[in-house]
Simulated scan of single mutants.
Amino acid sequence: MSAIATRDGRFRGYPLAGGEKLTANKPAILSNGLLVSVGAVGVCAGVMRETVDNSQGVDKAIRGSVEIGEHMFPNSGDINETNVGQTAFFVDATSNLSIDSATNTRSTAGTITEVDSRGVWVNLGV
């Protein structure tokens, strides 16, 4: 069997969970196949390309588009250059990153690719 399609892009689309409003330029978490805001346990699907409001809708009523790839987020203070190549986790809704999963209660951001004085670069996307 051969591939039925190819793509070489930085954008992906996923359905939103019911009751969610996701804001442009903020990370979105993929949990049980649905986009939700940071705070839910899951893996970062990418950064929202536009604000999408499903606050009055049910699961899968609308879809949101995310951008994958490397993005910079604030450092909670425990990530340094020795952590490059390791997994970072979102601490809270402000999108601060930590190396600590808090016993698997935090959303996975992605792989740390660089750390500098401005923040932490992380490769996002599933």
Rank of each mutant, 00 (worst) to 15 (best):
M1T: 09
M1D: 04
S2F: 06
S2D: 07
I4K: 14
A5F: 14
T6H: 13
T6A: 09
T6W: 14
D8C: 09
D8N: 15
D8K: 13
G9R: 12
R10S: 10
R10H: 10
F11L: 14
F11Q: 15
R12D: 06
G13W: 14
Y14T: 12
P15A: 14
P15L: 15
L16F: 13
A17P: 09
G19K: 13
G19R: 11
E20G: 11
K21Q: 15
K21T: 15
L22V: 14
A24N: 13
A24E: 15
A24S: 15
P27A: 11
A28P: 10
I29E: 06
L30W: 08
S31M: 12
S31I: 09
N32V: 08
G33L: 13
G33S: 14
G33R: 13
L34Q: 11
V38R: 07
G39N: 03
G39F: 04
A40F: 12
V41C: 02
V43Q: 05
V43A: 11
V47K: 04
E50V: 12
T51P: 06
V52N: 13
D53Q: 07
D53M: 08
D53V: 04
N54P: 10
S55E: 03
Q56P: 01
G57E: 03
G57K: 09
V58R: 03
V58T: 07
D59P: 13
D59N: 14
K60S: 13
A61Y: 10
A61E: 09
I62M: 07
R63F: 11
G64P: 04
V66Q: 03
E67Y: 02
E67R: 05
E67T: 05
I68R: 03
G69E: 12
E70I: 06
E70G: 02
E70Y: 01
H71W: 00
P74I: 02
N75S: 06
S76K: 05
G77P: 02
I79E: 01
N80H: 03
N80M: 06
E81C: 02
G85I: 00
Q86M: 04
T87H: 01
A88L: 00
A88Q: 01
F89S: 00
F89I: 02
V91N: 00
A93C: 03
T94G: 07
S95M: 04
S95T: 08
L97Q: 01
L97F: 00
L97D: 01
L97V: 00
S98N: 10
I99T: 05
D100L: 02
D100Q: 00
S101G: 01
S101H: 01
A102C: 01
A102H: 00
T103F: 02
T105M: 04
T105I: 04
T105E: 06
R106D: 09
R106I: 08
R106M: 09
R106V: 07
S107T: 05
S107Y: 03
T108Y: 06
T108R: 06
A109N: 10
A109K: 06
G110S: 01
G110N: 01
G110C: 03
G110K: 03
T111P: 05
T111I: 15
I112D: 08
I112E: 05
I112M: 12
T113H: 03
T113C: 07
E114H: 08
E114P: 02
V115H: 10
V115E: 10
D116A: 07
S117Y: 09
S117R: 08
R118V: 12
R118A: 14
V120S: 09
W121M: 13
V122M: 10
N123W: 05
N123H: 10
L124Y: 12
L124K: 11
V126E: 05
V126Y: 11
